[in-house]
């Protein structure tokens, strides 16, 4: 098991390295100009050239890359070319917003998805069909649109929740909860549908396996069979779906932040894109990819714990 985890960890770090490297060269070699981005359209060529030299952009790309990578492994992600502040400070203030949304959404989605998926699988017929339709709708409605509707109804109309703004968890736990409820709900909706659908299918599939009939023939109660044997065998594909949904939630959060006026890394990235601020974009990318690697690692460990064959491999 330790070897299994170690192998997954190495694979994850390698993945992050490849992505970050690829993106660094992509940004630099396709003509993105942070100097021009920082100074704006009306700066003269001379000003841009001076800024370029300041930022070290006149060096060969490979040298810039090694420089960036060397600093990145020590936790120094450089300085924003547009705002002249350390990238890491920016991320540390903004990251909790996005992570709150994505993690919140994934916890809500997992809870509801599992319950609904199992209910649909064990109640064939009308309930299952109704749920299927709800699931299709859940996938089809863009989550940012749902977020707008939520904002109109619950924040502007009913005034149950704040329409905009993020309250830090340490400042006011209740305020924090209220500030993320609507975005998390909007974000979770599609994921609930996806997880429920996946689990429903795999539960139905496991139920049709011979060993379930044999377990019944041994006189085990249906609840025991469902909760231990069926769910355990049905969960690996749902876990995979969960990690995919986390990645989707990170993406979705970037859009939903805008609806609720939250200052997360989505808005950081969008601003940085407008300013061609490569240092900031790379920082956001590195953090996000590391987060995804971490979540995938957790899913892999769970997967291994559930499946003896994977563990042995």
């Amino acid at each position: 098991m330790v070897r299994f985890i170690a192998r997954r960890l190495v694979a994850g770090v390698l993945l992050a390295f490849v992505v970050v490297t690829g993106m660094f060269f992509f940004l630099h070699l396709t003509g993105t100009d942070p100097a021009r981005g920082a100074l704006g359209l009306y700066a003269t060529e001379d000003q841009v050239a001076i800024k370029s030299a300041q930022l070290g952009l006149d060096r060969p790309v490979i040298e810039q890359y090694l420089d960036w990578l060397g600093h990145a492994v020590t936790g120094d992600l450089g300085t924003s070319s547009a705002q002249s502040s350390p990238v890491i400070d920016l991320l540390v203030t903004r990251l909790p917003v996005t992570v709150s949304l994505a993690l919140g959404a994934i916890i809500v989605a997992a809870t509801f998805g599992v319950v609904l998926g199992v209910l649909a699988a064990v109640n064939p017929g009308r309930f299952d069909r109704a749920l299927q339709i709800v699931m299709v709708i859940g996938f089809a409605l863009p989550n940012f649109w749902v977020a707008i509707i939520f904002a109109i109804v619950f924040a502007v109309g009913l005034r149950w929740f704040p329409a905009t703004g993020y309250v830090h968890l340490l400042d006011s736990p209740v305020g924090w909860l209220l500030s993320i409820t609507l975005p998390v709900a909007a974000l979770a909706l599609g994921s609930i549908a996806a997880i429920a659908q996946q689990l429903r299918n795999s539960v139905i599939n496991v139920y049709s396996q011979d060993y379930v009939r044999t377990l019944r023939s041994r006189g085990l109660p249906p609840r025991t069979i469902l909760l231990t044997h069926v769910l355990r065998n049905a969960s690996p594909p749902a876990l995979t779906m969960l990690s995919l949904q986390f990645i989707a939630a990170m993406s979705g959060a970037a859009i939903i932040e805008r609806v609720f006026g939250l200052q997360g890394i989505g808005s950081v990235a969008i601003n940085a894109s407008g300013n061609s601020d490569i240092q900031v974009i790379m920082g956001v990318l590195l953090f996000t990819v590391l987060l995804v690697v971490l979540v995938n690692l957790i899913v892999d460990i769970l997967y291994g714990a559930l499946n003896p064959k994977v563990r042995a491999a």
């Binding site: 993945l15 992505v19 990170m250 993406s251 940085a272 894109s273 061609s276 974009i281 956001v284």
Partner: peptide, 16 residues
């Protein structure tokens, strides 16, 4: 599959 699509799109948009 491990890439958050919006972030990658933002990178691409920055360049292209």
């Amino acid at each position: 599959m491990s890439l958050p699509e919006i972030l990658i799109l933002i990178v691409v948009i920055t360049s292209l």
